[in-house]
């Protein structure tokens, strides 16, 4: 069942920004994020799925956004990501630990399941319960992943950068 134009207007106005934020958490690129957000809505428009509520649509859109983002990141032209190392190659006199760390890049390089949690929680300010609904895992699992993701980030920073 296709959604009505009116309903589309509503869900677009309500959720588009959120989807953009989520996509940005993945791509760190404005244009890509807009693209992904739009793609998510295209999928929605073409979907025959029966939605029970706007919230249901929201979860659906978020899932699609995550999928699209992951897909984009896996695509060949996106594989090359500027990292600290590029700078280090150009400026060999700089030591890695002297560079300020870029948290968004660190998040971006996390394993997907942790990245997803971080993006949803921090970029989109989603609540644990909502994340749990989106990802279809228990709330405790969300919490645990979140904690592990934070720990992982800490580890990476401590390992690769010398910061107080």
């Amino acid at each position: 069942m296709k959604i009505s134009e009116q309903q589309f207007d509503y869900v677009y106005n309500e959720y588009a920004k959120e989807l953009y934020n989520i996509a940005y958490g993945y791509t760190l690129n404005r244009e890509d994020s807009i693209d992904i957000m739009q793609n998510a809505y295209v999928v929605l428009l073409e979907s025959n799925k029966k939605f029970e509520s706007n919230e249901h649509i929201k979860y659906f859109l978020i899932r699609v956004t995550i999928n699209e983002s992951i897909d984009l990141l896996k695509s060949a032209y996106k594989k090359k990501v500027v990292k600290d190392n590029d700078i280090l190659v150009k400026f060999p006199e700089i030591k890695k630990e002297e560079l300020p760390y870029d948290l968004s890049l660190i998040v971006n390089n996390l394993p997907e399941k942790y990245k997803t949690i971080i993006v949803l929680y921090y970029y989109d300010d989603m609540k644990i319960k909502d994340i749990s609904n989106v990802l279809r895992i228990s709330e405790s699992a969300v919490k645990k992943r979140l904690e592990r993701a934070r720990n992982l980030i800490k580890e990476i920073i401590e390992r690769d950068y010398k910061h107080d």
Binding site: Y12, Y20, Y24, I34, L103, V107, Y122, Y123, R150
Partner: peptide
């Protein structure tokens, strides 16, 4: 991490 979202470029949806 909470401040990460401040880095998101603002757009008019």
């Amino acid at each position: 991490l909470s401040e990460l979202k401040n880095n998101i470029p603002d757009i008019d949806i």
